[in-house]
Amino acid sequence: MTGTTARQCSSWVLLSLLAIDLALTAGCAGNASTARYSASNTGSSCYAKALPTAGEGGLAWGSTLNMAREKSMVNCIRYAGRSGGAPDTCHVVLSECKN
C-alpha cells in the first residue's frame, strides 16, 4: 500500500514541478523579448550603407551620421575582401538618420 501511495505522490510532485517550470519559463521569455526590442529602438538612430564596385557591401548603425558612415565603410572593406570584390572601391551610397 505504501508503494502505491509513494508513486502517486511522486507523480503529483513531478507534475507540479513541471507546471511551475513552464509558468516561470513563459514569464521570463516574454520579459526578455520586450527588453531586447526596446533596447535596440533606443540605441542608434542613424544608418549608412557602403558598397564596392564588386562584392558585398556593409550596412551599419551609429548614434551619429559620421559614426554610421565610418562603421559601414569598415564593414564594406571587410566584406568586399571576403566576397571577391575590391575593398579600395568602397563608398557610402546611402546614409540618413531616423527622426
Rank of each mutant, 00 (worst) to 15 (best):
S10R: 11
H91Q: 10
S16N: 04
Y79M: 09
S10Y: 02
S38D: 14
L18E: 01
G27N: 09
S45T: 10
Y79S: 10
K71F: 06
T4F: 09
A86D: 14
A19P: 01
Y79C: 01
H91V: 06
T2L: 08
W12S: 14
L65W: 08
L14W: 08
A68Y: 04
G57C: 09
S16V: 02
A68M: 10
E56M: 10
A26P: 01
N75G: 00
E96W: 07
A29K: 05
S44H: 07
S38T: 15
T4G: 02
S11L: 13
Y79P: 00
S45G: 12
A26R: 07
M1R: 12
G3D: 13
A86M: 08
Y47R: 15
M67Q: 13
A48C: 11
A80F: 03
S33E: 04
T25C: 05
L59T: 15
C76A: 13
A26G: 12
A80H: 02
A48G: 02
G55S: 02
V13E: 01
N31W: 03
G30C: 06
E96T: 12
L51D: 10
N31A: 13
I20G: 05
H91R: 12
I77R: 15
A35H: 01
S83P: 06
A26M: 10
A50E: 08
L59S: 11
T64A: 03
G27Q: 02
R69G: 05
G85P: 13
Y37R: 13
K98S: 12
H91N: 10
S40N: 06
Y47Q: 11
V93S: 07
T89G: 03
I20K: 04
P52G: 11
N66C: 00
A50C: 14
K71S: 12
E56N: 12
T5S: 09
V93C: 01
M73E: 15
G27F: 01
A60T: 05
N75V: 00
S40E: 13
M1A: 09
A39W: 07
L94S: 15
R82P: 00
T4Q: 07
R36A: 15
A50W: 05
M1D: 14
A68T: 04
G55F: 10
T25P: 00
T25H: 03
S40G: 03
K49N: 03
T5P: 00
S33L: 06
L17D: 13
C28L: 10
S16G: 13
E70W: 02
T2M: 05
R36S: 05
G3Q: 13
H91M: 09
G55T: 06
K71D: 14
